[in-house]
Design a binder for these strands. Structure first.
Lengths: 349, 349
DNA sequence: CTGAAAGCGCTTACAG
DNA sequence: CTGAAAGCGCTTACAG
């Protein structure tokens, strides 16, 4: 049982009131230097640490920010993406002496419970929401309520929200440009992400727009759900339904699906990149490790988490009004799966 | 600005005191059923959610548990391992209506700040500590202080700690047994993990013990640090220093290093598994995705996180005394890198 | 200038 | 049985 050392204990040891001790620790002018030093020493000796509950109640501030993850399914939660976002959040939160809370819905049925509880119980001063579906009412509600919220991603229908994201359309256009220009691919297939998320729509639109710009009007699209299995299923469907005139380039909306697709292609004896180019999206770790490595777009998830959290503190501190979108640049990472040389250098130790 | 709805607001709406409203919401007998219903309805209408600070201050309980990650380096933090542990923690914490706090040291120099602050500020009722080094004084201090702490891993020198882990020695023995018995490998190399962590020592000891049991007395060992690069560096060293009598089986202390090693072997034109068998440890995601897939030990990280958190709540609630180790079973997962058939089935959707 | 009360939101132990 | 005070730990606004 931790006998919590309270401010009163520190004060008693020095012989002042707890109010005085509080001011002394805060370095307040009105406390004599002598007393300040004595209080600080007593606090150190007793191992005093302010009670977060007491401080929070008094200051109406939790000194904590929450990461809200809409669906807690292992599929989504297991994603390296969240680890990167969380790392970025931690960096920013540490700089502000704030805690990071991770909030998940236990099951999908419980809907917005994680949202509501974290926010209104004032357990956190604000929240980062990522991977929210376009029609997720809870996000709408949160943003509309005026609570400090920063979204990661693009939410064109929530114009007055603060958000941080990348340009999925342009990034996908660059992938397609590369396939057409550098590798002379023209029979294009796109396996989409979840189309109830803006990223899914944007990457598909980028694909279609780029194909059209190159005068390719028979580009095809299969719907996926970002899981490795759905990537595999899409390619199985392709091989089953189209025995000739198969694509010579496949643009997967993320690396997980590309991994599943590569597996099916390999089993079918179709060579990558000789017979078909493959590209993915994300570069959170998988794409570097497959054979061949997957050409992809590197999404700066950690930086997104960090910047989103900085924006959130600006909001919480009232240093910023409640709108504005920050767009981060992305890089296309060329590896073997598109037909480029697989990066022969190995990362410096 | 979130105009927090307080218990007083709810009480005022119904015309009772906030004390009465509190009891009504708690379903206390002494409040008439009629009033109870009225209060509950008012609370719902106003969107009342209890203030976590008020409740925490009063009840001396934060209803939160912390995951303490000793070194925040991206290398460690980025690991899928933590995501799995965090998922398990969330499951258990949700069941107890508690929040999950992730606490990291901003930089390695700041030592035990994350430990001390989280715990003594009573921001969390207890903590899970994972991946702590053997000589980490902070862990010792935490455990000794009597605060509720559950460790993930094996800490033989902290006999009175509550911990959850696997048997790394036996698991590694099983890997070696497989290589020797099924694939007739006898020229064995082990690339270790970090030897200031018990897992590193245990996996090395398991390797050496199993080799000896098979009458192999020239098994060799190279020290690694669990990073992909150190796996690559170990194999580069091997190829440089030993031009003949090279190993026919390499046991990496984790999958990340095995990935780095596979890359170097492939560039050197050495075939896996024909020329050399490779096995790893962890199975957090990478091992399934390489070509060939990596034979490995599946560490039940999510379950470890879940069970550790359940133990922690037992400790916090006083339902358990402060010692005892829970050992979880592990499975060896056979894939192509050891010489077994690469799993031809693909996971059911 | 300094001492000590008030009050953040909550719930339980006490007084009536 | 029920009303309302007390107090968790903190810090600021107020009284002296």
């Amino acid at each position: 049982m931790p006998k919590s050392v309270t401010l009163k204990d520190v004060a008693a040891k020095v012989g002042v009131t707890s109010a005085a001790a509080s001011m002394a620790l805060a370095g307040h002018e009105r406390i004599s230097e002598r007393t300040r030093a004595a209080v600080k020493q007593a606090a150190a000796e007793l191992g005093y640490v302010p009670s977060s509950a007491g401080r929070a109640l008094r200051s109406q501030r939790a000194d904590a920010v929450a990461l809200i993850v809409p669906n807690s399914s292992t599929h989504v939660f297991g994603h390296l993406y969240f680890m990167h976002v969380l790392t970025g959040m931690s960096t920013a939160a540490n700089a502000h002496d704030a805690q990071v809370i991770v909030s998940t819905n236990a099951d999908t049925s419980s809907g917005g419970v994680a949202y509501e509880r974290v926010m209104r119980s004032r357990t956190a001063d604000g929240a980062i929401v990522t991977s929210a579906a376009i029609d997720d009412d809870h996000v709408q509600g949160l943003v509309a309520s005026g609570l400090p919220v920063v979204l990661i991603g693009n939410y064109p229908h929530l114009a007055d929200a603060v958000s941080v994201g990348i340009d999925d359309v342009t990034a996908t256009v660059r992938l397609v440009d590369h396939l057409v220009t550098e590798h002379a691919r023209r029979r294009l297939l796109h396996v989409t992400g979840t189309l109830d998320h803006q990223t899914g729509i944007d990457r598909r639109d980028g694909f279609l727009r780029a194909a059209a710009a190159h005068g390719i009007d028979d580009a095809s699209v299969i719907e996926g759900d970002l899981s490795e299995d759905s990537g595999a299923a899409a390619i199985e469907q392709l091989l089953r339904e189209r025995t000739d005139d198969r694509p010579d380039a496949i643009v997967f909306a993320n690396d997980d699906m590309a991994v599943g697709g590569l597996r099916v292609l390999r089993r079918a004896g179709i060579r990558v990149p000789e017979d078909v180019s493959v590209v993915g999206f994300d570069d959170f770790g998988l794409a570097r490790v497959t054979t061949p490595g997957i050409t992809t777009v590197r999404v700066p998830a950690e930086e997104m988490g960090r910047i989103a959290t900085e924006r959130l503190f600006e909001l919480v501190d009232g240093r910023r009004t409640g709108d504005g979108h920050t767009e981060l640049p992305v890089d296309v990472v060329l590896r073997g799966s598109c037909g480029c040389d697989d990066d022969p250098s190995h990362p410096a130790p």
